Measured scan of single mutants.
Amino acid sequence: TGIVNVSSSLNVRSSASTSSKVIGSLSGNTKVTIVGEEGAFYKIEYKGSHGYVAAEYI
C-alpha cells in the first residue's frame, strides 16, 4: 500500500512507460494497493484492473 504524493493529480497509465496511454488519474493523498514494480513504475490495483504510476510519486 502506498499514498499518492502529489499536489494536483497523478496519471495512471496502461503500461510502465511515460509514452503509454493515460487511463485515468489519482488525486494527492489517495491510498493505492501496489501489486508489482517495473522499473520506475509501480503496478497498482485500479478500477477492478491494473494500472501503472510513477514510483517517485508514491
Rank of each mutant, 00 (worst) to 15 (best):
G48Q: 07
K47D: 10
V4T: 07
S7P: 10
I34L: 05
Y46R: 00
I23N: 00
K43Y: 06
G36W: 06
S7R: 12
A55W: 06
V53Q: 00
L26N: 00
G36F: 04
T30G: 05
V35G: 01
V6E: 06
K47E: 12
S25L: 13
H50L: 09
K43A: 05
N29F: 14
L26D: 00
I3H: 08
G51T: 01
N5W: 10
K31H: 10
K31N: 07
T1M: 12
E45I: 14
Y46L: 03
T33K: 12
V6L: 09
H50G: 04
K31E: 10
T18D: 12
S7T: 12
A16I: 05
E38A: 07
V35Q: 05
I34M: 03
V4K: 04
N29V: 06
E38H: 08
V6D: 05
T1W: 15
A55R: 15
G39V: 03
I3Q: 07
A55N: 06
K47W: 07
V32E: 00
S17T: 09
Y46N: 01
V35F: 07
S7W: 09
A55T: 10
K21H: 10
N11C: 15
S49I: 12
N11L: 15
S49N: 08
G28L: 11
S15K: 11
T33S: 08
I44G: 00
S9F: 14
G2K: 06
V12W: 02
S19C: 13
S15A: 13
G2W: 10
A16H: 04
N5C: 15
S25T: 15
G51H: 02
V4P: 04
A55H: 07
G48V: 03
S17D: 12
L26Q: 02
F41S: 03
T1V: 13
S8Q: 11
I58G: 01
Y57G: 09
K43D: 01
A54R: 13
S49Q: 12
V32A: 02
S27D: 11
S14W: 08
V4Q: 04
A16S: 07
G2F: 09
E56A: 13
L26F: 04
E56I: 14
V6Y: 08
E56W: 08
Y42I: 07
H50W: 15
G28P: 15
E38F: 11
A16D: 02
A16F: 04
I58H: 02
V6N: 08
K21T: 11
A54V: 13
F41D: 02
I34Q: 00
S19H: 12
S27A: 14
Y57I: 03
T1A: 10
S49V: 10
G51D: 01
A55L: 08
S15T: 10
F41E: 01
N5P: 04
S49R: 12
I3T: 09
L26S: 01
N11Y: 13
T1E: 11
L26K: 00
V32F: 04
A16L: 04
I58C: 03
Y57V: 04
K21Y: 08
K43G: 01
E45K: 11
V6W: 07
S7K: 13
F41Y: 09
E37T: 14
K47H: 09
S14Q: 14
V35Y: 07
S20Q: 02
K31M: 13
V32D: 00
G39K: 06
T33Q: 09
G39E: 05
Y52W: 12
H50Q: 06
S19G: 10
S15L: 09
G39N: 08
S20D: 03
A16R: 05
Y57T: 04
S17L: 07
G28D: 08
T30L: 06
I23Y: 02
I58Y: 03
V53M: 02
K43M: 09
V53H: 00
V12I: 08
G51M: 03
V53S: 01
A55G: 05
G36R: 05
E45V: 13
E56G: 07
I44Y: 01
F41N: 02
T1L: 11
N5E: 06
S14L: 13
V6H: 10
V4E: 03
L26H: 02
V22K: 06
G48D: 08
N11E: 15
L10T: 08
K43I: 13
N5A: 09
V32T: 02
A54F: 14
V32Y: 04
N5R: 12
V32C: 04
G24L: 03
T33Y: 11
G24P: 01
N5I: 13
R13E: 01
L10E: 02
Y52D: 00
S17H: 09
V4L: 06
G28K: 14
N29D: 08
S7C: 15
G28C: 13
S17K: 07
A55D: 01
T33E: 06
G48Y: 05
I34T: 00
I23W: 03
I3R: 10
G48I: 03
I23C: 05
T1N: 09
T18V: 12
K47R: 10
Y42C: 05
K47Y: 09
L26W: 03
L10F: 04
S20N: 03
S20K: 02
S15I: 06
S8I: 12
S8L: 10
I34R: 01
V35M: 09
S14M: 13
Y57S: 08
N29E: 07
T30P: 03
S9E: 10
N11G: 08
R13P: 00
T1D: 08
K21R: 12
S27G: 10
G36I: 04
Y46Q: 00
S7I: 11
N11H: 13
G51S: 02
Y52V: 01
S14V: 12
I3V: 12
Y57P: 02
S7Q: 11
V4G: 04
N29T: 07
L10I: 15
I58F: 05
E38W: 08
T18G: 11
S20G: 13
K21F: 09
I34P: 01
E56K: 14
Y52R: 00
S20W: 05
F41L: 03
I58E: 01
G28Q: 11
Y46V: 02
T30F: 07
T33N: 10
G39Q: 05
R13Q: 10
G2N: 05
S15C: 12
T30Y: 07
V6K: 12
T18R: 12
E38K: 06
Y57D: 07
S49W: 08
R13D: 01
